[in-house]
């Protein structure tokens, strides 16, 4: 029987893909993501990492774009193109890791809050609602100020502040699924918590979680750049946010050094937009009610 089940799943995945591919926005986003990810992965092989070292620079600071330095140089004379390229890596890694953390917390809390009911649900909901209204950036700032600077801290700070939206979404979806009579039928057949969650709730909730993940990555990357811009990032690594932090600290605006300001910010916009477009396209595929409206 599993053969049939797999065949059907493959067919379903194929149908989902065809529908996704029929949306121009989603396709553009996906291609953009593929290119950016490839660039990030290739950076150590294609570029010379020694150019990131301040002690080994050869160019003058604040050099405008030229044929040697396509995007000019920063306040230390490092190539902005190289910095932005390498910044992609940290921004993506932090964004993805923080998202995984946040979606994990959100999904577990959301399902638990909807499934078990009673006081467990009441406490979890109260907890979620509290964190939902709490301005997440303020909390993330507080966390990353008191913890030692580093990649782990920034991932943690974003991850533990971004989950409530996921939790609420998952809770709503779980409640919707559990209100369906087939859950009652499963219970009447003798199924317990594990059976109901594993066989019915999770498969129905996961597509939504997946969509939510793509959208969460987008906001996690913005959050990373914001925290780094405020000087709360990992001081030993280059990210788009830390580049903009440096630009702000060293007066790129008053220097009129647009070449130092534009590329990192554009990087954030591209990645975030790509994830958002993918997420919205997926949402349209998986939520038929939205079809033809976006």
């Amino acid at each position: 029987m599993t053969a049939i089940a797999w065949q059907r799943r493959r067919a379903a995945a194929g149908a989902t893909w065809r529908e996704f591919a029929s949306q121009r926005g989603g396709l553009v986003g996906l291609v953009g993501l593929a290119v950016i990810t490839l660039l990030a992965l290739l950076a150590p092989w294609v570029t010379d990492a020694s150019g990131l070292d301040v002690t080994r620079v050869t160019a003058r600071p604040w050099e405008p774009p030229s044929s040697t330095y396509w995007l000019g140089t920063d306040h230390n004379g490092r190539s902005v193109l190289l910095l932005t390229w390498w910044g992609t890596r940290i921004s993506l890694v932090v964004g993805l890791a923080a998202t995984v953390l946040s979606v994990l917390i959100g999904t577990v809390v959301g399902i638990a809050a909807a499934h078990f009911g009673g006081w467990v649900s009441a406490v979890l909901m109260r907890f979620t609602d509290f964190f939902l209204v709490l301005p997440s950036l303020v909390l993330a700032i507080a966390l990353s100020t008191v913890l030692p600077r580093g990649l782990g801290t920034i991932v943690l700070a974003i991850g533990v502040t971004a989950w409530p939206a996921t939790a609420r979404l998952v809770r709503a979806q779980t409640l919707a699924v559990e209100a369906r009579p087939f859950i009652e039928r499963a219970r009447a057949l003798g199924g317990g918590h594990g059976h109901v969650i594993g066989r019915h709730v999770l498969p129905a909730v996961l597509p939504l979680v997946f969509v939510n993940t793509t959208l969460t990555v987008a906001s996690a990357i913005v959050a990373e750049s914001t925290l780094s811009f405020l000087g709360l990032g990992d001081p030993t690594r280059v990210s788009w946010g830390s580049l903009l932090h440096a630009a702000n600290m060293h007066g790129a605006v008053s220097q009129r050094a647009w070449w130092f300001l534009v590329p990192p910010g554009l990087g954030v916009v591209c990645v975030v937009l790509a994830f958002t477009l993918c997420g919205r396209a997926l949402e349209t595929v998986l939520n038929p009610r939205l079809k033809g409206e976006r």
């Binding site: 914001t226 630009a247 702000n248 910010g265 937009l273």
Partner: peptide, 18 residues
């Protein structure tokens, strides 16, 4: 709106200022 939503606030501020 989507593009603006994707923009970090501070970056937009710096660009406007520039």
């Amino acid at each position: 709106a989507l593009a603006q939503w994707a923009m970090p606030t501070f970056w937009l501020g710096m660009l406007l200022s520039l």
